[in-house]
Design a binder for these strands. Sequence first.
DNA 1: ATTTTGACGACGT
DNA 2: GACGTCGCCAAAA
Length: 111
Amino acid sequence: MKEADNFFDKVYTIARLIPFGSVTSYGAIAKYLGAARSARMVGWAMNNSHHQAKEVPAHRVVNRKGVLTGKHHFEGTSLMQQLLENEGIIVIENQIQDFERVFWDPTEGLP
DNA sequence: ATTTTGACGACGT
DNA sequence: GACGTCGCCAAAA
């Protein structure tokens, strides 16, 4: 039984592979999975990520603008931002600064 | 069963 | 290049 046979499980797997201090976008993950236009599914998967036994660093996943769209889904109001800043990522007004610099594309990051 | 919505993104205007 | 529309698929109402 492999981990990541389903689209959702793959999303969780990729999310866990995001390096410390890096972020990626929903679309990037979706594209890597061959479902470039199913970015919403990635987002939905993240929402379901709370069901997963393993913790998923969903805070490292933002939309392609680098905006913390889903921060409301985290505890508190700025936990997501706190986590990102903890990794050296600057976030102002839910917007990641130097987004290109911290962006991690699974297509390039993974072999 | 149908309709609406949703952590988005690409394309069209 | 900003704004609008469609697509993608799944879950909740």
